[in-house]
């Protein structure tokens, strides 16, 4: 009796391992297919531009607010910490380094996963459920080119731009708190800021952003495209897109940090 129980547990674990690898395999095939279609005509320029607006421009307020308050709180927190060691001078470097290397890309990625990833998944899943994707096929249009490529291209290109703007706003947030609330002098804070600011830090953040943009839009498209049937399918697709994109962002953030800074 206990022996069969152990066997059953092994079987269940094995089963979930197998289905996990099968899922990863399907995702890889999907991603490879999507990337392949990016470089082969026909291209849908106008639709891609619309996605640039939807994914990039309309995410600006969310990303701006997130990085602004993050920069502000960083200045505040490091001030309370650093005054104990008389190290207030390091506040600017903490703000600049954390924003550009980590916080702007990761937080922007997570916010965009919630905003854009969810809406991509819901939209494409609804199209799947209502047979609009089948209708595309019957009208001689490849759904990968028409639906997926524009979103993935827009996500991969727009997130770095969003993060660059987020960098600026976040550093400004730190500046505002330091100068107006903590009574730093404008000149010395700005000097410290520009002393620590390095292209490599900013660029590493932007590369991360591009990867995160790809992940968010890929997961939205993948879960939407393979959605189950009915309203339940759409709901599950949306949840899965956001959760999987968020977790992958955190994992890839670690991997990329390891690659860049070791």
């Amino acid at each position: 009796m206990p022996f069969t129980l152990v066997l059953n547990i092994f079987a269940a674990v094995g089963q979930s391992f197998l289905s996990f690898f099968a899922a990863v395999g399907r995702l890889f095939v999907f991603a490879a297919k999507a990337v392949g279609h990016i470089f082969a005509p026909p291209f849908f320029g106008r639709i891609t531009l619309k996605q640039f607006m939807d994914i990039g421009y309309y995410s600006l307020p969310v990303v701006g607010m997130t990085t602004l308050f993050t920069g502000m709180v960083l200045a505040l927190q490091s001030y309370t910490g650093f005054t104990r060691f008389n190290a207030e001078g390091a506040i600017a470097s903490v703000v600049v380094l954390s924003i550009t290397r980590e916080l702007a890309p990761v937080l922007a990625g997570l916010m965009v996963a919630g905003r854009v990833g969810a809406s991509i998944a819901a939209e494409i899943a609804t199209m799947r459920v209502t047979e609009q994707i089948d209708a595309l096929v019957t009208l001689s249009v490849n759904p990968f080119k028409y639906l997926i490529v524009p979103r993935i291209v827009a996500g991969t290109l727009m997130l770095p731009i969003l993060v660059l703007i987020g960098d600026i706003i976040g550093i400004m947030g730190g500046y505002i708190v330091s100068v107006h609330a903590l009574d730093f002098s404008v000149g010395s804070y700005l000097k410290q800021t520009f002393d620590v600011l390095q292209a490599a830090d900013v660029i590493s953040g932007l590369v991360k952003a591009a990867v995160f943009g790809f992940i968010v839009t890929l997961m939205g498209c993948y879960h939407g495209f393979n959605s189950g049937r009915g309203a339940q399918g759409v709901g599950a697709a949306t949840t899965n897109a956001v959760v999987s994109a968020s977790i992958l962002i955190l994992i890839f953030n670690y991997v990329l940090t390891q690659v860049f800074f070791s």
Partner: peptide, 19 residues
């Protein structure tokens, strides 16, 4: 397959219009 699709027209049961 894409070439073949040019031959076809399809009315879906649920219309399947692009919303």
């Amino acid at each position: 397959r894409v070439e073949l699709m040019h031959k076809f027209g399809m009315l879906f049961q649920g219309a399947a219009l692009f919303d």
